[in-house]
Design a protein around this nucleic acid. Structure first.
Length: 259
DNA sequence: ATGGTCGGCAACCGA
């Protein structure tokens, strides 16, 4: 958060989103650069941060009705924050917005020898069971974040070569799909850009030339409830942000919702 | 088959 604050400010000035959701902020709440965002016109900030690891935040021009932080896997970590946008934001029918940072899962895709992968799978199971992530037919809900899973064949540069690589193994892809089914979530990015188009939001730092190799993955997601799905008019992946000095390995995803 | 990069923090660990 603090290292790339200027890059975030640049993105905000270019796009002027109503709401910006960040993950892996690695910033304790008492060190969060609130003033910088206030000066940019973003007065409403829902933080769930800790030192060094994880951390999520919702930065908004619009006020919230409420803020919720959900605990997963009984760990004292910061991987979820949600807000409700309603009357105070000029939104007639309230919208719940969930912002997630799903565990990366380590290197070895075997939960019996890699506790990080076991944690990732357990986290996805808990998301599937979460009552807060299951709306009624008319509920207006959005779920975004770094879900650390590229579930579809064309969400990775090579389906075949990625099958045993954490982020694209069948077990985690199936568990993410189960979260989606249980909550009746619609994958808004794929609704607008269906397969077989390649869609990536992340490129490893471990490449001599990330752009030339283009070995990306779609780890970042925008899901909506059925009641909002036909209101998504655009999805943009700001790939140019991968090419700036000291980039993040993730790039911004923007969803336009017609309310 | 292997190592390749970051960033925080001061030796490695998580991503």
């Amino acid at each position: 958060m603090r290292l790339r604050i200027d890059l975030v400010a640049k993105f905000i000035k270019a796009v002027r989103p109503d709401v910006l959701c960040l993950q892996e902020t690695k910033c304790p709440d008492d060190k969060f650069p609130l003033k910088r965002f206030h000066r940019l016109g973003y007065e409403h900030i829902a933080m769930n941060g800790q030192k060094g690891y994880h951390g999520v935040v919702v930065i908004s021009r619009l006020p919230f009705e409420s803020v919720t932080r959900q605990e997963f896997c009984a760990k004292n970590d910061c991987r979820h924050v949600s807000v409700v946008l309603g009357e105070r934001a000029g939104v007639r029918n309230p919208i719940s917005l969930h912002n997630f940072y799903v565990p990366a899962g380590g290197d070895i895709p075997d939960p019996s020898i890699n506790p990080k992968f076991a944690h990732k799978l357990a986290f996805l199971d808990e998301m599937r069971e979460s009552a807060a992530l299951r709306g009624g037919a008319s509920d207006r809900m959005v779920l975004v974040g770094d879900l650390n899973v590229a579930p579809l064949e064309h969400d990775v540069w090579s389906h075949k070569q990625m099958l045993k690589v954490v982020s694209h193994t069948p077990i985690e892809c199936e568990k993410l799909a189960a979260v989606q089914r249980a909550g009746h979530w619609i994958d808004a990015m794929r609704m607008l850009v269906p397969e077989p188009a390649k869609l990536f939001t992340w490129w490893s730092y471990r490449a001599a030339d990330w752009k030339a190799a283009d070995r990306g993955r779609r780890l970042d997601h925008v899901w909506t409830s059925p009641a909002l799905a036909d209101r998504i008019s655009a999805i943009a992946i700001a790939k140019t942000y991968r090419g700036v000095p000291r980039p993040s390995d993730h790039v911004p995803v923007t969803a336009t919702i017609e309310l």
